[in-house]
Design a protein around this nucleic acid. Structure first.
Length: 466
DNA sequence: GTGCGGTGTGTGTCTGGCTG
DNA sequence: CAGCCAGACACACACCGCAC
C-alpha cells in the first residue's frame, strides 16, 4: 500500500512538473510566474494538465491531479510506458536466457554426437566369443579378489582395470557398459546354473558334465528361470572364476537375498527369521553362514510409494532390516552371551552393544555396498559369537539334566501355558526339537518363558500365512 | 559451527530396440 | 527368440554454497 502511494505520489510529481512546464510556456511573456499566478488564483490557458495549489496546500492539488490524469488517460499512458520499459528489459533477459539454453542444449547435443562418434571409433562391437569371455572372467575375478567390487558390481576402478587389462590381452576396447552388461549376463547364467543344482527334476551326467532332463522339463524350467535352457546341451563355462565373482552374492532368490536387487522380501519378519534361521535347527546345527532354502520364494514387494520401485542401494530399508536383524540376534544371543561373558573376558569393541552402536548416529559415508559388506562382516562375527556361546551352552546343558521333553513341558505349564492354550500348543510343536527346548531353558523367569511361547506362536502362524 | 538445499556422481534395475 | 546393447529411471551418497 505504501509503495502504491509512493508511486502515485511520483506520478503526481511528474505530472506537476509537466503541467508546470506547460504553464510556464504559456506564461512565458507575462509576470508573475506560474506559481505566483497559481497562488493568486488566476487560471491561465496552457497545454497539459493544470492544477491549482491553494495556500501552499499540496495534498489536495495532488489528488486533483491524479483524478485529472486518470480521466484524461495520461496516467495509463505513463504506466504503459513504464511497463513497456520493464517488459523490454525482461524480454531481453528472457531472450538471453533462451539463447543460453539453446546454446547449451546444442552444445550438449553436439557433445553427445561427438562422444558417440569417438566411442564408435574407439570401441569395438562386443564380441563375446568363448576366448574373450574366458579372459573377461579371469579379469573380473582378479578385480573381485582385489576388492574392487562394491555391492554386486565392480566399482569404477574395477571396471577401469578390466578395460585396461582386457585391451592388453585381447587388443579390444570395450566400454564399461559393455563389461557391465556382460557381468549381468554372467551373473544370471551363474545363478541359473546353481539353480539347476537344486532342482529335483533333472539329473547329472558326470561324463558330459551336464544336467539332463526331458525337453518338457527344460521348457518348464525356462519359464521359471529365464535363460536356464541354454544349459540343456552345454555346461557352465569358467565356473571357477564365476564362483569368485558371484558366489558370495548369488541371487537365486530362495536362499539368499541381495539388498541391491531391488526386490524386497514382502514379509520382512519372516525374512529375518529365515536369515537367522532359527526355525531350521538342522541348518543351524550345520553352522552354515547362509540360510538354507526357505519355504517362500522371494517376492516383489508391494509398492505403495507413488509407484516408485524400491531401490535400496545401501538404503534405509537395508539399514532397518539390519537393525532388526541385530535386534533379533541380540534377543537370541543375549541370554547365552551373558553366560559366556561370565567366563571369558570379551574383546573390547566386539560386544553386541558396540555392534549395535552402528545403527545409531550418523550414517556412514560409504557406498551402500560397502556399508552392507561391513555390516554383514560384523553380523557374521556376531553369529560366530552366537554359535560359539550356543555351543558352550549346549555343552553345559548336556552336562546338566532337565532338557527332556517331559522336563521342559513341566516348565511350560509352570509358566502359565495351560493345556489348550496357544502357548501350550506351540510348545508341543516346537519342543520336539532339542535346540528349541534348550533355547527355552535359557529364559530365566516364567514371565519370559510365557512371552517367548506367545511370540513363537505368533511368529510361526505368521510364517505359515506368508 | 551447523543445518539445509542443490548438484554431481556412482550404482543398480528395468525396458525396449536391434540383430543374427 | 535369445542375446546384446543403450538409455531411462531411481536412489544413495558426497560435496559445496549459503543462511543462520
Amino acid at each position: 500500500m505504501q509503495a502504491v502511494a509512493r508511486a502515485a505520489r511520483g506520478l503526481a510529481a511528474a505530472a506537476v512538473a509537466r503541467a508546470a512546464r506547460g504553464l510556464a510556456a504559456a506564461a512565458a511573456a507575462a509576470r508573475p510566474s506560474v506559481m505566483e499566478a497559481g497562488h493568486s488564483g488566476q487560471v491561465q490557458q496552457a497545454r497539459g494538465i493544470v492544477v491549482q495549489v491553494r495556500d501552499g496546500n499540496l495534498e489536495p492539488a495532488l489528488s486533483i491531479m491524479e483524478r485529472k490524469m486518470r480521466s484524461s488517460g495520461t496516467e495509463r499512458l505513463i504506466r504503459a510506458h513504464t511497463l513497456l520499459d520493464i517488459k523490454d528489459s525482461e524480454n531481453r533477459l528472457l531472450a538471453l536466457k533462451e539463447l543460453m539454453q539453446r546454446v547449451r542444449s546444442q552444445e550438449l547435443m553436439l557433445r553427445k554426437i561427438v562422444i558417440k562418434q569417438i566411442r564408435t571409433m574407439e570401441e569395438d562391437n562386443a564380441d563375446w566369443c568363448d576366448e574373450n569371455v574366458k579372459i573377461a572372467c579371469e579379469i573380473f575375478a582378479e578385480e573381485v579378489r582385489a576388492k574392487n567390487r562394491s555391492g554386486s558390481h565392480l566399482n569404477k576402478l574395477g571396471y577401469n582395470n578390466v578395460m585396461v587389462k582386457f585391451k592388453e590381452r585381447t587388443g579390444k576396447t570395450y566400454s564399461e557398459l559393455q563389461f557391465k552388461n556382460k557381468w549381468d549376463k554372467l551373473k544370471k547364467d551363474y545363478s541359473n546354473w546353481k539353480q539347476l543344482g537344486k532342482e529335483t527334476g533333472c539329473g547329472w551326467d558326470p561324463n558330459k558334465k551336464l544336467y539332463v532332463a526331458p525337453d518338457w522339463w527344460w521348457e518348464k524350467a525356462n519359464i521359471q528361470f529365464k535363460g536356464i535352457s541354454k544349459f540343456k546341451d552345454k555346461s557352465l563355462q569358467n565356473a571357477e572364476e564365476l564362483s569368485v565373482m558371484f558366489e558370495d552374492l548369488r541371487n537365486t532368490g530362495d536362499d539368499h537375498w541381495v539388498p541391491t536387487s531391488g526386490e524386497l522380501p514382502q514379509d520382512t519378519e519372516a525374512q529375518i527369521h529365515d536369515a537367522i534361521n532359527i526355525e531350521d535347527e538342522n541348518a543351524s546345527d550345520c553352522g552354515e553362514d547362509t540360510p538354507s532354502s526357505s519355504t517362500s520364494k522371494r517376492r516383489r514387494v508391494v509398492v505403495t510409494d507413488k509407484g516408485k520401485k524400491p531401490k535400496t542401494t545401501g538404503g534405509q530399508w537395508m539399514q532397518d532390516q539390519m537393525s532388526k536383524l541385530f535386534e533379533l540376534n541380540k534377543q537370541t544371543t543375549t541370554s547365552c552371551e551373558s553366560m559366556v561373558l561370565a567366563r571369558t573376558q570379551e574383546t573390547p569393541g566386539s560386544s553386541i552393544k558396540d555392534v549395535m552402536q552402528l545403527d545409531k548416529g550418523k550414517k556412514p559415508k560409504t557406498t551402500g555396498g560397502q556399508w552392507m559388506q561391513d555390516q554383514m562382516s560384523k553380523l557374521v562375527e556376531l553369529n560366530k559369537q552366537t554359535t560359539s556361546c550356543e555351543s558352550m551352552f549346549l555343552a553345559r546343558t548336556q552336562e546338566t539334566p532337565g532338557s527332556s521333553i517331559k522336563d521342559v513341558m513341566q516348565l511350560v505349564k509352570a509358566c502359565g501355558a495351560i493345556a489348550g492354550s496357544k502357548e501350550h500348543f506351540i510348545a508341543t510343536q516346537v519342543f520336539t526339537k532339542k535346540n528349541e527346548r534348550e533355547m527355552f531353558l535359557t529364559l530365566d523367569t516364567p514371565e519370559e518363558r510365557f512371552q517367548w511361547l506367545s511370540m513363537k506362536y505368533e511368529w510361526m502362524t505368521m510364517n505359515k500365512k506368508g
